[in-house]
Design a protein around this nucleic acid. Structure first.
Lengths: 157, 157
DNA sequence: CATACATTCTCTAGTGGCTAGAGGATCAAG
DNA sequence: CTTGATCCTCTAGCCACTAGAGAATGTATG
């Protein structure tokens, strides 16, 4: 395996798509690599390792900023890893919250589907269920309370 | 309760934020309401019901386009509801997939955290785990296969 | 060597589902 | 009459990419 590879080979080797590699460079997650005399990027093994790290962390749902923090910490191996540990724990808590939320959702969807008599739209219980919030598991909103904290967005899986 | 309410009252009554109501109007999910002579929107009970429907469906993770489809179907109550049923079933399958994916992720995060000896970064197993893909549950990529279907993004919960 | 096709470059714009802010008009209460 | 809340439109920003244009190189084949 060659020491310096093109962006296409790097994409192949790491599973990160070519435009995404360039995107990571543009947001400073990946250092600007040296170029050939015809201006093409050349990546070495450390870059590939960094890309694999980023990809894996993204697959695990870590945000770009969290990955940036981990990469910064990684560059200072003499520091204690409490921060990374805390990051992972926060993320785990978030994942757990999302799972339980999805579980409730799944149950409600199943109930909706079971209620559907496969008749006409006029009798469809799914639509009815979606119209009347009080039929479902969500707690009723207090008259002045603001629900939907609008947090925890933008992550996949 | 008044028959025609301002956008702020509508937001209060439905739990959909004011800018979000305007956004829904801009993308055609909500019809353009009549206005006062000073150009302010006036919503009636059917609009509020529609907004509650949209909000609930969004909370359940349905995409805007799916909601649009349901609202269109809702307007033709003589049609069979097979489409809505299929929509809900597809969505349920998606939710189930996301849950199992998150479950795997949760297990890996727990393992990572358990491996962290809370020592120095140099010895942090979390970073190590994230660097070496072969340590984790994901199947190894075939040399020419494209993983990460990049589908199922953009939904909350 | 010529040609064809693949890869790469930079740049801009689009995605979804909102959210934030500017700058101005209007309303309700004291 | 003044203050502050609410409303209007419009534009831009968010995240993490993805898609496409248009041009320049690289590689494989005849």
């Amino acid at each position: 395996m060659p020491n310096d590879v093109s962006i296409g080979r790097a994409a192949e080797a790491t599973g990160v798509k070519v435009p995404t590699i360039r995107y990571y460079e543009s947001v400073g997650l990946l250092p600007r690599p040296p170029r050939t005399e015809s201006n093409r990027r050349l990546y070495g093994e450390p870059d590939l390792a960094r890309l694999r790290f980023i990809r894996h962390a993204r697959e695990l749902g870590f945000e770009i900023e969290a990955i940036r923090a981990m990469l910064d910490l990684q560059a200072r191996p003499e520091l204690p890893c409490a921060e990374i540990d805390a990051l992972a724990r926060r993320h785990l808590a978030d994942v757990t919250r999302r799972i339980s939320s999805l579980d409730g959702l799944k149950r409600e969807l199943e109930r909706m589907i079971n209620c559907c008599r496969r008749g006409r739209v006029a009798d469809c219980r799914i639509i009815e269920t979606l119209q009347h919030h009080e039929l479902c598991r969500h707690h009723r909103p207090a008259p002045d309370a603001r629900r939907r904290p609008t947090k925890g967005r933008g992550q996949r899986q």
